[in-house]
Structures are given as structure tokens and as C-alpha cells.
Design a protein around this nucleic acid. Structure first.
Lengths: 209, 209
DNA sequence: GAATTATATGAAGGATCATTCAGCTTTTGG
DNA sequence: CCAAAAGCTGAATGATCCTTCATATAATTC
């Protein structure tokens, strides 16, 4: 079901010397900054290279084409995000269900807030690249983790655990993303975060056997 | 707060003869089909014109540039969507709160489902075009309508109506969009629709004074 | 310190595409 | 039926920008 990274999009070579690692990081960071400032439409290889302080040729040593750069950028981001979510799920294993919900929302929310602009810019670039596979892989990982967490809750039997889990995940991720895309002002956003937690908790209370 | 359509993106002229109306519709439909088939990245003016069965020049009679075409396409779609939501809100004015929620989710869900592929393709193109203004206008309209509906519910007093309203709208729209972007298979999607309604209803029950 | 390997350069090639415009056809109004 | 208006055409223009590669420099190895 879930495809690995297509050959056309994989890195050309991995850096062996430390200066090359620095270069690669600079390229990634430059790409993010260009995305934030100008958006995907005006992200050109030259502009990224310029901002990174290297020449275009250097970029092409590591990526076979522009798409591969964006792909790697998103893979990197989603990897980090998935790890954070997995960590939260593991740390909440066996906790009270209400606390799980609180922690999950908190983690996802925090991850989005920390570099809100970068997050928005990156999200747009995934959509534009049409890279469902990347997102699907991310979804599968987090699904696994959140599911394992939820069914470990003590003293809770759900009528249909899978559906309840799917609902929670879809609502939480969808709502949080919506908040950031609509760019609500901080007080509203904060109020909404609290309400979202309340809502999910009200839901699980009603979904119990 | 909310900007009107930028001059650079407004239509060049409106069709006077009926054959021109046909042409314009063909162009819009062609654009949608190209978006579905090839995505925004490979949507070229020539390709759209070809598919519409007209020449490029014709397109430029109605739109000053490619962006304006995509802009108009999205404006059209969001206009229709907003109208449907407003109609639902008006028809549910004064109804029981649980029924309102049901109706609102139903309307939005149905709108997304009817031409799911087109909806997805269009959504991607808005994101890509960076046209927040368009989306903001849509959000403002639906906000107005849903708010008016909710506060008309009899026998319901909320602790903080504005926050409850904001939460409901954000969660519903966010979750539904998430379902379609994740492309869940129909049985899961249908189960989720039912659960989402239950969740919102559980929430309003808990948010009452 | 010489040979090998890794990294970096950036001008030039070449492909793609948005956009124009001079001329043509169809419709309309009188 | 005819003049004016509306609509349509598509080759040509020009700009943008991805990608290559011949060459140069730096690091590593032995």
C-alpha cells in the first residue's frame, strides 16, 4: 500500500565530509526561508543556492532535481513530527484517557506553533508537490502510535475502538491544522485549544461502552 | 479587513453573446479537468485552451493572465459553496441545536463528496495560488451564517457563545476536509461522518450553561 | 607530498510557457 | 443587407529557469 520514495526523488549522494553536512543544512534552511518569503511558485534553484551561499551546481550534487529538494525537505519535517508524536504516545501509554487526549493535542499544537510560518510554508509545498505518498506514510505512522496509546487506557471499553480512534485522530489533526491555516489571533487560538480538548473528552465519555 | 479582488486578477471582460458564455464555461470546465488530471504544476494556458476547444487567445480575452483564471475558478466554487451553507443555515434557523449540527455537517459533507476529485484539485490550486483573501472572504461569510443559526437555537444558553461557535465551525470544517484529503474509503468515511455529528452534539451538551 | 576522492563553481544550453497582436469570422442591430 | 461590435485565431516573442559539465579547489589517504 505504502510506496517507498521514488528513485527520481532520492538524494544523489550523502555528504562524507563535515563541510558538506554544513552545506546541506544551509540548503535546507535556505529553501525554508525562500518558501516563507516568496512561496513555492517563486522558489528557484538559483534563489535557494544564493540564500544558502553556495552555487547552483552544489545543490545538484545532492539532489537530482528541484523536486527532490522539496521532497527531502518535507520528508525531514514529517520525520521529526512523527517522532515527537510517537514519543508522546509512548510516554502516555497506560495513562488516563483524558490525559492522553490532552497530551496528544498539546504535542501537535506545540509542533505547529513553534515555527508557525515555516510549518505553513512547508505544508503548502507538500500540497503543491502532490506528494501523497509522503503524507500517507506519516499518517500510517502516527495512526499506529496513537492507536496503541488509546487502547492502552485502563478502565475504558469503547463500543468500536477503531472508529473512535479514527475519529479522534481525524478531528484533532484536522481542527488544529485549520486553526493555523485560518491564522486565528492568539487569544482565540488558545481558547480553541482548550475547547478542542473538552470536545474530545466529551466525545470519549459518550463513546464508552 | 477583507480586501476585494485585486485588479490584476479580475476578469477582462464579460461575455455579451451566448456563444461567449459557452466558451467561458468550457474554459472553466477544462481548467478543472486539467487540474484533476495533471495538477497545478502542469496546467498551462495552452493545455486548458486545447481541452476547452478554443485557442489561447480566446482565454486572454476574458482573463488578463493565468492567475486570474485560477482565481476566478476558485471564486466561483467558493461562491457556490457559501451559498449552499447559507441556505442550510437559514433553513435551520430556530431549529433544535442537534438538528442544526446534523444539517451543517451534512451540507458541507455533501458538497465535498459530490465532485470529490474536483474539490481536491481546486483546493490544491487555492493553496498554491496563495490566495488567502479569497478563503478569508469565504470564511467570513460562512462564519456570519453559522453564527446567526446557532444563536437562534431555542432553549440553549452557552457559557461563551462565540467560542463555542468558533470551535464548532473550526472542528467541523477541519475534520471534513481532513477526511477528503486522507481519502478514506467510503465505509470509514461514513462512520466518521456519524461520529463527527455525535462528537459535536456531545460538545454542545457539555458547553451549555 | 602525491594521488585520490570529495566538494564546489557558474556560464551556457535548451526547454517550457505565458502573453501579445494583427488579421479573420460570426453575430447583432438597424 | 451592411456596418459595427463581439468573438476567435495561433504563430511569434521573450522571459524564466532548470540542469549540465568542464574546471577548480579542498580534504583525505597512504
Amino acid at each position: 500500500m505504502i510506496d517507498p520514495a521514488p528513485a527520481a526523488l532520492t538524494a544523489r549522494k550523502t555528504p562524507r565530509q563535515s563541510r558538506a553536512k554544513v552545506t546541506l543544512d544551509a540548503i535546507f534552511e535556505a529553501a525554508i526561508q525562500v518558501l516563507i518569503r516568496d512561496g513555492m511558485a517563486s522558489l528557484t534553484t538559483t534563489r535557494v543556492a544564493e540564500r544558502a551561499g553556495v552555487s547552483v551546481g552544489t545543490m545538484y550534487q545532492y539532489f537530482p532535481n528541484k523536486q527532490a529538494l522539496i521532497y527531502a525537505l518535507n520528508a525531514r519535517y514529517l520525520e521529526a513530527l512523527a517522532e515527537r508524536i510517537e514519543a508522546t504516545c509512548q510516554s502516555q501509554h497506560g495513562a488516563a484517557i483524558n490525559q492522553m487526549i490532552d497530551a496528544l493535542i498539546d504535542t501537535y499544537w506545540r509542533a505547529k506553533t513553534e515555527r508557525a510560518e515555516a510549518t505553513r510554508a512547508l505544508y503548502k509545498s507538500v500540497v503543491e508537490m502532490d506528494n501523497d505518498a509522503l503524507v500517507q506514510r506519516f499518517a500510517a505512522r502516527t495512526n499506529e502510535a496513537t492507536r496503541a496509546m488509546l487502547i492502552s487506557a485502563p478502565n475504558v471499553q469503547f463500543r468500536s475502538p477503531d472508529i473512535t480512534h479514527l475519529t479522534l485522530v481525524t478531528v484533532i489533526f484536522g481542527a488544529v491544522r485549520n486553526v493555523f491555516e485560518r491564522n486565528l489571533d492568539p487569544p482565540d487560538a488558545e481558547a480553541l485549544r482548550v475547547e478542542l480538548i473538552a470536545m474530545c473528552q466529551a466525545y470519549v465519555a459518550a463513546a464508552r461502552l
